[in-house]
Simulated scan of single mutants.
Amino acid sequence: MKKRHFTYLACTATLLGTFAGTAPASAAHRTLVVHPGESIQKAVNAARSGDTVLVLAGTYRGSVTVRTAGVTLRGVGHRTVIKPAAKTSATPATSKKASVTCSGNGNGICVVGGKNKALRNVTVADLKVTGFSRTGLWSMGTDHLTVRRVTADDNGQWGIAQEHSTRGVFRENTARGNGDAGLFLANNVKAEQGAADSKGALVERNHLEDNRIGITVRRLRNLTVTSNYLTDNCAGVFVVGDENKPRAGALTVSDNRLERNNKYCPKTARLPYLKGSGIVLTGTEKALVTRNTVIGHSGRSPLSGGIVLFKSFVGATSERNRITGNHLENNAPADLVNQEAAKRKNAFDGNSCRASKPAGLC
């Protein structure tokens, strides 16, 4: 059967209205349509800044790498599925150069900037990426990346992950059954260094379920985690710092709903076993944790509890954080847990809760 080539939609109003929901594109802003059996990577390679690669419903095998600024990679929802290439299939010549690093590292979609120049204004939306040995969607060296309505299920490490990036927006995504964090943001995955300024990154209205950790923020500053729903993970939200400077923190965790994150996960080289942790701050400073609803967490790990301040395992303290206006109930060993010394000046005020360690925080 003869394979079709991906289609350019530059002026067909009916098709654009059906698939893209936009007015007819000009020649300068094209829509490149990928049908089942065609190469997403080939379309991405052909895209210019301002173009949209629209991937129709179907299952597509193989990794995809985006290296062009201003490109939108979009599916038609959960019916657009990206899975690993079959082990017996050779990588097509048209995509090998672009995707070898992505697929070789076990990732599904990769958005990659240059070493000294951020890749700007890329959008990935409305598709599902599943079954990759490492990460469903991984990005590095980006600025103003938007990831929205992406489903990242059953990937070996992270569902959606980002490092060395600024001003990312992660909105209305779903991450379930991933080996580590459903959504992971960090300054640097491999090196120990001070926290980076994310310049206002936003993690908003995502659904995180049945991962090891729902959302991990590691060694970052200046971002907001808000209005997310987290359930059945081993831990809900983990904000991680260490002894490096600048310190992690100066961020906001607000208006999230966390319910029964009571899955058991065994210990690692860095952490004890996890079970029953709602929001954990470890080695952070000047974080604001406010208006969250944290219900039904129970465990005996050192990190168990509704909202927990924990001295990191490398000795970094949590200092000058404010936990205020949260609603907590039925969390054990307590709704609020502060394992830092009083002189660290962490503030607990205006929270609705029944039990704390030490007593008196509610």
Rank of each mutant, 00 (worst) to 15 (best):
M1T: 13
K3T: 14
F6R: 08
A23I: 07
P24A: 15
H29A: 12
R30V: 03
T31S: 13
E38W: 10
S39P: 04
A43I: 03
L54A: 13
T59D: 06
R74G: 03
H78Q: 12
R79G: 09
A85R: 15
K87A: 15
P92D: 02
P92G: 02
T94I: 10
K97F: 12
V100A: 15
T101P: 07
S103E: 15
N105C: 02
V111M: 12
G114C: 06
N116S: 14
A118E: 11
N121M: 03
T123V: 14
T123A: 04
T135D: 15
W138C: 08
S139I: 06
G156F: 08
Q157E: 10
W158G: 09
G159W: 05
I160C: 08
Q162C: 10
N173I: 09
A175K: 01
D180N: 13
N188H: 00
A191Y: 01
E192G: 04
Q193D: 09
G194N: 06
A195G: 03
A195K: 03
A195Q: 01
A196S: 14
S198C: 09
K199D: 05
A201V: 03
E204Y: 12
E204S: 11
N211K: 06
T216S: 11
T224G: 00
S227L: 02
N228E: 03
D232T: 04
C234Q: 11
D242K: 00
E259V: 15
P266F: 10
P266L: 09
K275D: 00
L281N: 03
L288R: 04
V289Y: 00
S304M: 10
F310P: 00
S312Y: 07
F313H: 14
A316C: 02
N321V: 04
R322W: 06
T324R: 14
L336F: 07
S352D: 15
S356G: 10
